[in-house]
């Protein structure tokens, strides 16, 4: 990272980031949010901004394997990192199993919060979750205003139960 005068709002910093397998080398303002970098510089508008203060979860992306709120990180903080966004979930144009389950269970209405939920779910291993309360704790970092969460829980439970114990199901929806 090339160090410059960071006291000025116009300070520029060179960064290199890999997003969904594509490498971006850009000179960006030091104060540029990661969410704005992803949306405006990389042009990936599937990452949505709902609050810009790290509560609603709509802007969640995966940074080096962990879910992170892109509105609460600066682009310069992810210099050298590998990022995945919602655009990276589908395979060969087909929906991934969680996307498919959201579709089949009517787990989205307006769809604005959906990419954030999907990225948080993508970042974890269902084996690490003991029961529905664990799942609630994971997803309680995301606000949805349309669904009352009913069908989101149902969709996740359907995928996770199948993944862990095809004939049982510890995740009651």
């Amino acid at each position: 990272m090339e160090r410059q005068d960071h006291d000025s709002p116009s300070a520029q910093v060179d960064i290199e980031v890999t997003i969904n397998g594509e490498r971006f080398r850009n000179r960006v303002p030091a104060r540029l949010l990661l969410s704005d970098f992803i949306r405006d510089v990389a042009g990936l508008t599937g990452t949505h901004v709902g609050c810009e203060h790290g509560v609603c979860g709509a802007c969640t992306v995966i940074v080096d394997g962990d879910a992170a709120r892109s509105c609460s990180l600066l682009a310069v903080q992810v210099d050298g990192c590998t990022i995945r966004t919602v655009e990276d979930l589908a395979t060969d144009g087909g929906l991934c199993p969680m996307q498919q389950a959201f579709h089949e269970n009517l787990a989205l209405q307006c769809g604005f919060c959906t990419p954030g939920f999907l990225m948080t779910l993508e970042s974890v291993d269902p084996q690490d979750f003991a029961d529905a309360d664990d799942l609630f704790a994971l997803l309680s970092g995301h606000l949805c205003r349309c669904t009352g969460y009913q069908n989101i829980i149902k969709a996740v439970a359907s995928v996770w139960n199948e993944a862990i114990e095809p004939h049982g199901g510890r995740f009651q929806s």
Binding site: L44, T45, G46, T47, H48, T85, V86, E87, L89, A90, L95, Q99, F102, H103, L108, C110, G111, F112, T114, P115, L118
Partner: peptide
Amino acid sequence: EDRSALLGQSQY
């Protein structure tokens, strides 16, 4: 409505 929203392609 779902496909574009799930893929992050809906335009708000």
